[in-house]
Design a protein around this nucleic acid. Structure first.
Lengths: 357, 357
DNA sequence: TCATCGGCTTGAGTCGATTCAAAAAGATCA
DNA sequence: TGATCTTTTTGAATCGACTCAAGCCGATGA
């Protein structure tokens, strides 16, 4: 380890360590001649400042942790990109961590980041009610919830998932579907629960205006005159789980089979779509599909996918913005909950103009 | 900032700071009674060890930097996941950084990571010949090249890109194509150059055995009896660039238009495929397509995409492995270059059995 | 009772950069 | 030339945890 330190630089430039530090941090207070000598020494020795020591002394870090549910999901990649771009403008580094929706991994990352004394943590929590998050904040590490609304104890940026679910539901009902499947992930994930709730509410409203319509919003596949709803909660929001949900649906007798599916994210939807193709069901004729997130691949799918769009990069940027605001004035800071509106991008996968059956 | 330190813990437990440190690092040498008292104090105060101070003192960090060309590309997400999983087993943290194929961003990240005195850096360099990488290693931060072969100055893990290009080229020629387009990214990216070179070599070999075949491997669209090759190098390996290449090709008169395209990665290929659909060209009938990386979305595309598959997670795991090996015994360590073999997954996008024309 | 020994605990010194009061050097003016 | 400012530079103290030589203590054996 041939790491040069500030002391060697000082020796070489024939000044004190204090002066080298000044050159590094407030060059304007050092005389030009000295400053040049120090710069020369830095260059000759290949000196790179030890940020660890600096951090220990000043107590303030220049890195932010971002913990997401799934790095392999392009949605989060875009959120991360948004966060990174704004952080960069503030000379701050974002370290991206993957909880893979596993509470134990999430906890480990939280602990590691706290040990590192990062400036703050942006997190899409596995479980938004996790008391550890509040404890973290209390111990001095600000936390911003991303894609998940907070309850006042911390800042958050989110997209209205209930509204998104509602939009998707209304769209499918409007297109004439009367038996609709919701494909979700673990209900403990708030996004899943909210999208499902919004979706259900759309169905309920439709049932109210439906003449003689009996609605079954809860799940289960009972008979009923109005809109029938089934909900399946898969163990993860992945392509593979979407595929297995699709296969399960395709195996149903065509009379019992829903005519449309709303998937809680695009990965599920893409897997679901693959299963349809594999089982010879036509999309949207036999099965309409709406996804969520509108990742770039949604438009490039076997059948271009309708999807609820969220402002992905803006989510990331706003989260960093809230964090920087909190760090800049911890006293004055009032926690804020920012909520964006999603919108639906209709593509071929749900765009059947005639009513099915 | 209510951060408790080891001193407060010591006071509360009525022991010295040295003892608290011992409890933290070698609990077995502390008597059970004292140990318990200290653990109690830690719990009561909510003490979390300051990794920054620890790192400064012991000089060794427990984090590794991973700089990739594009976090939004699922290929790199999978590499990162592989790295993360092995690092986790060694109680080490991976911080993921995105260079976005921009040398300036890459440089900034290298600098930040060196300042943080990370244990080492895994990087998919924008320019593998960058002398900064060797300098970094010389100054004490080990570097492992990922998805890019090194020349002996450092460790590397890669997949044989020339071979991958060759496999793709042979496949298309075998399927009867005689006018083939290569869609690449910046030639400065080694993966692009190698895939192109391998691809060209496949064509050249085919030309040699072709009766009377004049081959034009370099690019340009001159006439010739054998296999004709065109190469377009787009500014980035993205879906958008693939789309614009596709539109450009679709605009050609059908006589001049290639019948097949090999794209340097799947993002390009997916964009290219979208453009074909938009312009009403059938895949694979009017245009066969082969991509590279075999990301999960390739199989889910409008027309399932043939693609050259790489062992993505294994790349990441192996990179961490090499790094840990180097860090464990810096003296004994001999740099190694690990190379994996790619293979082709044939799907519908290139699977036309009759010869085109 | 005293010397010896092993098991625990102590606390000063250290890692590298920053800070700031104080000293030194330089500039200005009478 | 000396007094008075102003501009630069200095170096000791500091951040929090780790290390290790030295000390303490109780037990054991003579």
């Amino acid at each position: 380890m041939a790491t040069t330190n500030i002391k060697e630089v000082a020796q070489r430039a024939r000044v004190s360590v204090g002066t080298v530090s000044n050159v590094l941090n407030r060059p304007e207070i050092v005389s030009p001649a000295t400053r040049e000598r120090v710069f020369d020494a830095i260059r000759e020795l290949g000196f790179v400042r030890n940020e660890v020591a600096r951090h220990l002394r000043v107590g303030r870090s220049r890195t932010v942790g971002l913990i997401v549910l799934d790095v392999a999901n392009p949605f989060f990649a875009d959120v991360a990109q948004g966060a990174d771009s704004l952080a960069d403008e503030h000379d701050t580094m974002v370290v991206l961590c993957n909880s893979a929706a596993d509470p134990a991994r999430e906890l480990r990352h939280l602990y590691q980041l706290e040990q590192q004394r990062v400036m703050g943590i942006l997190i899409t929590p596995v479980d938004a009610g996790n008391p550890r998050l509040a404890e973290l904040a209390a111990r001095g590490t600000p936390v911003v919830l991303v894609d998940s609304a907070a309850t006042g104890l911390q800042c958050s940026v989110a997209v209205d998932d209930r509204l998104g679910g509602h939009i998707a539901g209304s769209h499918l009902i409007e297109r004439g579907h009367r038996k609709i499947l919701f494909v979700g992930g673990p209900q403990s994930i708030k996004q899943v629960a909210d999208r499902h709730a919004g979706f259900t509410s759309a169905v309920t409203e439709a049932g109210d205006t439906e003449p003689g319509g009996g609605v079954d919003p809860g799940g289960g596949m009972g008979p009923g005159g109005g809109v029938e709803l089934v909900a399946w909660f898969m163990p993860a929001l992945s392509v593979a789980n979407g595929r297995s949900a699709g296969e399960r649906v395709a195996a149903l007798p065509s009379g019992e089979r829903p005519t449309a599916a709303f998937c809680a994210n695009d990965l599920l939807a893409l897997g679901f779509l693959q299963a349809m193709a594999a089982r010879g069901l036509r999309v949207p004729d036999d099965m309409a599909i709406v996804g969520y997130d509108d990742i770039d691949f949604a438009a490039a799918a076997t059948v271009p996918l309708s999807s609820v769009r969220q402002p992905r990069e803006l989510l990331g940027r706003t989260a960093i913005d809230l964090l920087l605001e909190e760090v800049a004035e911890p006293e004055l800071h009032r926690h804020r909950q920012v909520i964006f509106q999603p919108d639906l991008v209709v593509r071929q996968s749900s765009d059947l103009h005639r009513s099915p059956h």
